[in-house]
């Protein structure tokens, strides 16, 4: 086949694929977002008792409980690198102990098999942010003091670079309002091009403030947070638990309302959603 024929054939095939995608996208009426997680017979069930878990103690259906979370690892059995008997021994049981020592990579793979929580280990709702006192260095615990980038990796339950490079968008929503919308780009585990798409609190749209508004100081602090994160490793977002480290002025008029945790959570929300665009 001549080069011209190959180029032409590839071009026609290419146009067909792109056109098909466009047409399917246009004619499909269902705009609903389909989550990428696996849907099994237990879809919608979030909480299981240990008795229910015990029924799945064999190779045909193998559930394990690790740190209060129930995983259906049946599909993973053929892919498990080590001895199959050792792997099956923990089916239908509390397997936290057996799991300990696995890599961050294994941790991230495990998440794909999560089907729910063990009764008594349901995730607790976080208290509303507004009721928390303003964050100051005094309120931080000793553990937070010792936060390093390494521990940040643990908090993300990932090694650096585990998130795909790309542009992410995330929100912090509370009390019926989107309070923070953020966009950022990840490259080699580093944050770039951070920007607010929306910043709102108590009926004030911070992105539409006039220059002379007193609340501009808050806006400036928020901007400082982003400029501090620019080019930094992803794990640096945990510094936002201590915003005094990342902005100039936490006292005075604005100090009471600056909550780095909102931005931190908006970023984590973006990460959870996955890459918005490449």
């Amino acid at each position: 086949m001549s080069a011209s024929r190959i180029a032409y054939t590839a071009f026609v095939a290419f146009l067909s694929v792109v056109a098909t995608l466009l047409v399917v996208s246009l004619v499909s009426e269902d705009d609903a977002y389909v989550p990428p997680e696996k849907k099994g017979p237990n879809e919608g069930r979030a909480v299981f008792t240990l008795d229910e878990v015990r029924e799945h103690d064999h190779a045909e259906s193998c559930w394990k409980v690790i740190d209060g979370v129930v995983y259906d690892v049946t599909d993973y059995i053929p892919r498990h690198p080590s001895d199959e008997d050792a792997f099956l021994r923990w089916c239908g049981r509390e397997a936290t102990q057996a799991w300990s020592g696995h890599s961050a990579r294994a941790e991230s793979m495990l998440r794909d098999y999560r089907i729910g929580a063990l009764a008594g280990h349901e995730p607790k709702e976080e208290p509303p942010a507004e009721t928390e006192p303003a964050i100051s260095t005094e309120t931080l615990t000793g553990a937070a003091e010792a936060l390093t980038r390494r521990q940040g990796s643990v908090l993300l339950s990932l090694g650096s670079g585990e998130y795909l490079d790309g542009v992410y968008r995330g929100n912090f929503i509370d009390r019926g309002h989107i309070q923070v919308s953020i966009q950022f780009r990840l490259e080699d585990g580093k944050l770039h091009d951070l920007g607010y798409r929306h910043l709102y609190y108590r009926d004030v749209d911070y992105l539409k403030l006039d220059d002379d508004e007193p609340l501009q100081a808050v806006m400036r602090q928020h901007e400082q947070i982003l400029s501090q994160l620019e080019g930094q490793p992803l794990t640096d977002i945990f510094r936002l638990y201590r915003p005094a480290e990342v902005v100039d002025d936490i006292d005075g008029y604005s100090g009471a309302t600056l909550r780095g945790a909102k931005i931190l959570h908006a970023i984590r929300d973006g990460l959870n959603r996955g890459v918005y665009s490449w």
């Binding site: 694929v17 792109v18 995608l21 466009l22 399917v24 996208s25 499909s28 705009d31 977002y33 389909v34 990428p36 996955g274 890459v275 665009s277 490449w278």
Partner: peptide, 17 residues
């Protein structure tokens, strides 16, 4: 580029292109 988000939805795939 189009194939990567295809498991999510065709719309996501078109949006990435």
């Amino acid at each position: 580029i189009a194939l990567a988000p295809l498991p999510v939805s065709v719309d996501a795939s078109v949006a990435s292109l």
